[in-house]
Design a protein around this nucleic acid. Structure first.
Length: 638
RNA sequence: GCCGAUGUAGCUCAAUCAGGCAGAGCAACGGAUUUGUAAUCCGUAGGCUUGGGGUUCGAUUCCCCACAUCGGCACCA
């Protein structure tokens, strides 16, 4: 007698050992049809798994994340089988499920081409047609080693040798294809219905650049065609809101081949958005008690020796340049400069906290393959600040920074955060006591905001603990922008001090922090988040006045001037074109407000506004509209 | 940096496979049209085919190098 308890608390009784699949069948044929695997007492198993004692069982279907992961993993095996059938010389390595899909790495004598991808996909479908069973088999290490060696699969042997000896090895076979795998898998290839191969790329064996580069094929897989289609649609949507594409379409910025990679050119409209962001930044920082600095973009290399960057940051710095008999370094960071200003005079404990902010442009050497639009560049501007304070002030300062961070991110429309706290790594500077005290201060500050956080134990930099804040954009993607970093190292290296109440010299605490991180990157994130449709307060052009005929030029120009006088960014389109043409053009440019002006409007000192949603609001007095827009801008409505 | 792909007019793309005067749409410019909520018509101009080298009678096309971009990997205090 076998008793199987289901998640809802009910149980099924069988008078003989049963497979997971049979239990599913007993619950209902509908469930049996969609189940891809099961979980016996929390352990994932195949549908073929035999239950011979009392257990708890959960059936996994393609509807759940777990089920999808199994489908994706099985699809990666399906792909490997297809590759082996088509290219017997290819060696298989690893092929896991990843977010939204899977990949499999192969060692093959030549790179796979797009045509190969097509034929592999074709062959995958054939194997699905064959509906081959996928069978699990357990095996001893030695047997498995011999088996894979005979098959010429050397990477598998390497994997087996790296697996803990106490573990039983399981193999999955479908047709002639055998793979070392923990499983579980769907029971037959016929279960895999919705997949598509997406791309091929090089990837290092075991993720190590010193190892051989393999051929990685990426694909996506879903429980059904509906899921696949929805995902492919999402990919298209993401492509449409790609900031590189929008940057060009909306004429916001460019990267210039003749200037070199990773260097950003802000065009007038992009620059306007940036100015609005910077203006907001200045305003909030004044309110938060910051003062502003401007410092140079380069300095004597000796400074970077003192700071230690030459030792531990060299790989990210551009080569120094020779000036007179000296070497100069373009700056990868702003902090040493702020320290120099600190050092320019004596400081008392009464000066603290000192909060110095700078929109500091820095240049970092990024490897050519790492460059990516505005997200990864070689020159960028940080909304940087450094706080000098005493130990007792850390908690208040961090609290204040978190206030400012959340207010800033929220204003730009990001309301979902993930907070990470990184603590002391093995190799670190500063006393254990200060680390402990500071870390606790960070935790307290986070708790004051009633926020959850993930602790990355030992994940901090050697010179201090830190808090990172990740935001989630409207496509659910996460971006790290804000970082608050304590530094016990630089004050030491530069030997900066303050005079305490006791009249003696003490070492101040230094906090680095950036809220948006890099303005370039943040702008790119905003652009994708809003798909180029900036909220009114950020939009480079907030309204365009459109005339019906030449007869309305005068009133249209007055309207534009009145809008401008009210502080709005307005343009006028006097071209001799049909109104539909003008509407289309400015709609494509994602202008939030289009103000149509014809006889009626001119007569009534009015406009006919069309909002960002394409809605025609009808004849509206100009004053009413201006009031409305000004309010929206003032509130920074998103 | 590594693997692969790509680079043609301001933009989006043809022509490249198989070497033989480089094309289209949009944008720009000129003209006509004076128009009411997502494209009015006609015309004109626009190119060192990313840069450098090579093969060839002849190179956008084939080969080599560089640069940039794209997809990944690695990197990313």
């Amino acid at each position: 007698m076998v008793k199987v308890t289901l998640p809802d608390g009910t149980s099924k009784h069988f008078d003989r050992p049963v497979t997971v699949s049979e239990v599913a069948q007993a619950i209902g044929p509908g469930l049996a049809k969609v189940a891809v695997a099961g979980k016996v007492d929390g352990r994932p198993v195949d549908l073929y798994h035999v239950i011979d004692q009392d257990v708890g069982l959960t059936l996994i279907t393609g509807q759940s994340e777990e089920g999808l992961e199994i489908i994706r993993h099985s699809t990666s095996h399906l792909m490997a089988q297809a590759v082996k059938e088509l290219f017997p010389g290819a060696q298989v390595t690893i092929g896991p499920a990843v977010e939204n899909g899977f990949y499999y790495d192969f060692d093959f004598e030549r790179p796979f081409t797009i045509d190969d991808l097509n034929s592999i996909e074709q062959r995958m479908m054939e194997i699905v047609e064959r509906d081959e069973p996928i069978a699990r088999r357990e095996m001893s290490r030695d047997e498995a080693l011999v088996l894979f060696k005979d098959m010429g699969e050397h990477y598998k042997g390497e994997i087996i040798n790296s697996i803990d000896a106490s573990q039983t090895l399981s193999l999955y076979a479908q047709g002639d294809f055998v793979d070392l795998c923990r499983g579980p898998h769907v029971p037959r290839t016929g279960y895999l219905k919705a997949f598509k191969l997406l791309s091929v790329a090089g990837a290092y064996w075991r993720g190590n650049a010193a190892n051989k580069q393999l051929q990685r094929i990426y694909g996506t897989a879903w429980a059904d065609m509906k899921g696949l289609k929805a995902y492919l649609h999402l990919l298209e949507e993401a492509e449409k809101r790609d900031h590189r594409r929008l940057g060009k379409e909306l004429d916001l910025f460019s990267l210039q081949e003749s200037a070199g990679g990773g260097l950003v050119f802000w065009h007038p409209h992009g620059a306007r958005v940036r100015q609005v962001i910077e203006h907001y930044w200045r305003e909030t920082h004044i309110q938060a008690g910051y003062e502003f600095l401007y410092t140079p973009h380069m300095a004597n290399l000796e400074l970077w020796r003192t700071s230690g960057h030459v030792d531990f940051y060299r790989d990210s710095m551009f080569s120094p340049m020779h000036v007179d008999e000296q070497e100069y370094q373009i700056r990868p960071m702003n902090c040493p400069f702020h320290i120099l200003i600190y050092q320019s005079r004596m400081h008392s404990h009464r000066d603290f906290p000192i909060r110095w902010a700078e929109l500091g442009t820095v240049y970092r050497y990024e490897m050519s393959g790492a460059l990516h639009g505005l997200f990864r560049v070689r020159g960028f501007t940080q909304d940087d600040a450094h706080i000098f304070c005493r130990e007792e002030q850390i908690e208040d300062e961090i609290t204040g920074i978190l206030d400012l961070t959340l207010a800033t991110l929220g204003t730009f429309g990001f309301k979902e955060y993930d907070i990470f706290l990184s603590t002391r790594p093995e190799k670190s500077v500063g006393s254990l006591a200060i680390w402990e005290k500071a870390t606790q201060a960070l935790i307290n500050a986070i708790k004051k905001h009633h926020l959850d956080f993930v602790e990355d134990k030992g994940g901090g930099a050697f010179y201090g603990p830190k808090i990172d804040v990740k935001i989630t954009d409207c496509l659910g993607r996460k971006w790290q922008c804000s970082t608050i970093q304590l530094d016990f190292n630089l004050p030491e290296r530069f030997d900066i001090t303050y005079i305490g109440e006791d009249g003696a010299k003490h070492r101040p605490i230094m906090i680095h922090r950036a809220l948006m991180g890099s303005l370039e990157r943040f702008f790119g994130i905003l652009l994708e988040h809003y798909a180029g449709r900036f909220p009114l307060w950020l939009a480079p052009v907030q309204a365009v006045v459109l005339t019906i005929t030449d007869a309305h030029h005068r009133w249209a120009t007055v309207v534009r001037d009145r809008l401008r006088a009210a502080g709005l960014r307005a343009e006028v389109d006097l071209r001799n074109e049909k109104i539909g043409y003008k509407i289309r053009e400015h709609t494509l440019k994602k202008i939030p407000w289009l103000l149509v002006v014809g006889d009626r409007e001119q007569e009534h000192q009015a406009v006919s506004p069309r909002d960002a949603g394409g809605k025609d609001l009808g004849l509206t007095p100009l004053d009413t509209l201006i009031e409305r827009l000004v309010l929206q801008v003032r509130e920074r409505r998103v």
